[in-house]
Write a protein that binds this DNA or RNA. Structure first.
Length: 356
DNA sequence: AAGAATGCCAACCGCAGTGAC
DNA sequence: TGTCACTGCGGTTGGCATTCT
């Protein structure tokens, strides 16, 4: 049985909104609120629009404190980091950028940011190509073994190596002659760069050590591996929050600053089971990798998607992978394990938005 | 200067989740 | 417990603006 249409399509206006329509909608909502029923709203105010259309217009354009265009580099970084972490969950990403809408971010990603990263990837490929030929030449001369597995002597950043997933440590088979980003150093550099400042062309890579509300700090563990801590961002809210739809509410919390709603939200967050870990989150979110082929090659993503490494081991791969992918923004591993910090962290972010 | 190509963004569409009954 | 209506989300499209040839 098909679903009944939400409105009479024949009598509904489509296309761009006129200033009159905007005024009607805006003034009504400002005075009366949405009334919790978007479908009925256009009839109430005499608009020949679908309720969904009204909602979209309000959320994406008429709502107060909406910012359009002019994305800062910090916002770029946040978007990229979150995209790597959680994929195209635009509403969640938007929740981390006050004043931005999911539609705005989605458009920005599709039209500019992705291309920007692609451009960087191409640069990396070219650099990697040059680098690998030099490396090969050196290996020939020294008669050395595998060039793909880094070790402390040839790794520019030996501290980073322990966190490498097997798939990144192993050579990736590829069929065509076009060199892809399967060169370890290139992947590492690219991912580190993606985890750091996306906007800067030149190394050295600058990680977020400065205090922003998203990237508060990162520490160095006893093993020397960098551990990132996101103070305000919950780890993958969609999956981290339970199935009551609270992720959606979290995403909206930035704009709906009604105290009652915040209280409801806090209740949901407080009931959140915090035992989920990164592995589960990423494992259950294979679609989060969609579109990332351009970052590390399709073969890599396929391997990631099916949850197996080149070596055939699955055990620790996701944990390692997530530690690689998550870092700058969404990782609060310790907090997740403790099962409490996420709640505080999530609500801290809400407080932040509310304060703004 | 004009047409074509590309970029950009607002809006639409359809699906999935959720709650009410 | 099942059905239905509503909401929210992500993908896609249409059309205007800008750039290129």
């Amino acid at each position: 049985m098909g679903r009944a249409p939400c409105c009479d399509k024949a009598n509904v206006k489509k296309g761009p909104w006129s200033p009159e329509e905007d005024n009607k909608l805006k003034s009504y909502i400002e005075q009366h609120g949405t009334g919790g029923n978007w479908i009925a709203l256009p009839q109430k105010i005499g608009l020949k629009r679908c309720g969904k259309s009204c909602r979209l217009r309000w959320l994406n354009y008429l709502r107060p404190n909406i910012k359009h265009g002019g994305f800062s580099e910090e916002e770029d970084d946040i978007i990229c980091s979150l995209y790597i972490s959680i994929g195209s969950r635009w509403s969640i990403i938007a929740a981390q950028l006050p004043g931005r809408t999911d539609n705005d971010i989605k458009n920005y990603w599709n039209t500019r940011l992705k291309k920007k990263l692609l451009g960087k990837q191409r640069k990396e490929q070219q650099a990697a190509r040059r680098g690998s030929s030099i490396k090969q030449e050196m290996m020939k001369r020294s008669g050395g073994g595998s060039s793909m597995v880094p070790n402390s002597s040839n790794n520019q950043n030996p501290q980073w190596a322990p966190g490498l997933p097997p798939a990144l440590l192993a050579p990736i088979p590829y069929s065509n002659q076009e060199p892809r980003v399967n060169d370890h150093a290139s992947i590492r550099k690219l991912l580190i760069k993606l985890g750091g400042r996306f906007s800067q062309d030149d190394l050295p890579i600058q990680l977020h050590g400065t205090s922003t509300h998203h990237f508060a700090n990162y520490n160095t563990s006893s093993t020397g591996q960098q551990i990132y801590q996101a103070v305000n961002i919950p780890t993958s809210p969609t999956d981290a929050f339970n199935s009551t739809g609270s992720a959606t509410q979290f995403a909206q919390a930035q704009s709906y600053v009604d105290e009652a709603e915040l209280n409801v939200l806090q209740g949901k967050i407080n009931s959140f089971p915090a035992e989920l870990d990164h592995q589960e989150i990423v494992y259950n979110n294979p679609q989060g990798l969609d579109g990332l082929e351009f970052l590390c090659g399709e073969g890599m993503v396929d391997n990631i998607r099916i949850g197996t490494s080149i070596s055939g081991t699955e055990s620790n791969f996701w944990g390692e992978m997530s530690s690689l992918v998550y870092p700058p923004v969404a990782s609060n591993y310790g907090g997740m394990q403790q099962g409490t910090d996420l709640q505080e962290c999530a609500f801290g972010e809400l407080r932040y938005h509310r304060a703004n």
